[in-house]
Write a protein that binds this DNA or RNA. Sequence first.
DNA 1: CGAGTAAAGTCTACAGTGTAGACGGGCGTT
DNA 2: AACGCCCGTCTACACTGTAGACTTTACTCG
Lengths: 234, 234
Amino acid sequence: MTTPNPSGAGKSKTKLSRDIVLAKALEMVDAEGLDALTMRRLGQELGRDPMSLYRYAENRAALLDGVTELVLDQLTIQPEDPDWKAQLRKIAHNLRMLALRHPNVVPLLVTRPLSTPLGLRPLGTLRPLEQILSLLVSAGFEPSDALHVYRVYYGFLYGHILNELQEFVVDPEENEVLLRLGLHRLPAKEFPKLRALAPALSDYDGASELDQGLTILLSGLEAQLSRQAAAALG
Amino acid sequence: MTTPNPSGAGKSKTKLSRDIVLAKALEMVDAEGLDALTMRRLGQELGRDPMSLYRYAENRAALLDGVTELVLDQLTIQPEDPDWKAQLRKIAHNLRMLALRHPNVVPLLVTRPLSTPLGLRPLGTLRPLEQILSLLVSAGFEPSDALHVYRVYYGFLYGHILNELQEFVVDPEENEVLLRLGLHRLPAKEFPKLRALAPALSDYDGASELDQGLTILLSGLEAQLSRQAAAALG
DNA sequence: CGAGTAAAGTCTACAGTGTAGACGGGCGTT
DNA sequence: AACGCCCGTCTACACTGTAGACTTTACTCG
């Protein structure tokens, strides 16, 4: 009697899997931040012994890498897009949205690669790089120039995301108040400019700011591309 | 007999201070990374009970903030410099050098602000912002435009630093070998472009890359400034 | 000089962490 | 029916940050 759990009525006796574990982990990170994700709590959330998690991730760091991959996998890139500029625009906006949707994951996104040599990173985090390189080469860039372009592009993009997230205040209600209260704390003589900018700080349109930057950047890159084409012909 | 320690012969019986604590903390982070900096080890390193540290920092997070400030304080900015473009260039290169000198602190630099509302950050981390705003306003930018410019500039700068640090491989000896070994691990069909770029990846001149980017960026910003000046006159 | 006070440093203790290693029980295949 | 394998569990260990009470040190004031 009481067959263990044919298909999962009340609890969740269905067999665990990497996807299930990672999904729950991401859920917890989104809801409560990185520090709240402990092996014990994750195990509890899944109704399993914490130790069972180690069947699906070597250790906590690897688990976090998995979460990173999970997020980055949601970034779709079309390396065959003939309009490379439009494609880079789309990617940028999509990544920005991902970052806004999972702000607690962003530290992982920017921080993990700093401690892992390129070749040893989770494949999921390298895929965007590969695909963008492919996009650029298809567009006519020499491979080494494509790398150069990628660096400028991704540098700008991550810079923007960090910037925007820094000024992002969670509570939409107390937004202005809190912000000004925070700024009010600053010594008036030392931070006159910053304090005066309180109003300007509170309305910040990240999407348009990103887009303006992209316009400048992409036209600059395009100029570089046509300069090359000309050089190749002459 | 054996007066405790008049001025500190062998050990270090001189009174502790915030500066001493933070300096040692930075030293440890530089040498062994963020995770190695535990209260207990830091205490041990200073020849004191770990608990004594709590007189100089409210908790571990605050201590890390202190380390961040310590690094950022080494960034000198001249807000009165009449040549704002040159000044921004200098700042960028100086910050880059700081990042290279303290790579383990960079995660703090980019990550801590994400979890602290602007007004509540350590003053030392806000000072660069204030000073750059001041520089830009002196140069003729409207305050709100100065903010805009600051965002573009700092976004670009941090983006570059992250980029460069990602590709930085510590061991100068095994540099190429390790890098290629790492890349060799990647599935050949999935990552053809990336694998082919191994040689290009290994020679990366961060300083010149940064400088080229700055040139483009600064001339763009200058154009914006003169456009404004014209508009104000017309 | 001696007493009193405030700061600096220490001790103990607790709740929580990641994870190694041995173990058991259920499954599918032979 | 017996095998072997994978999944999950249990126990245990070394280590973490830090609250709270305590002791020691340094310094000031009468």
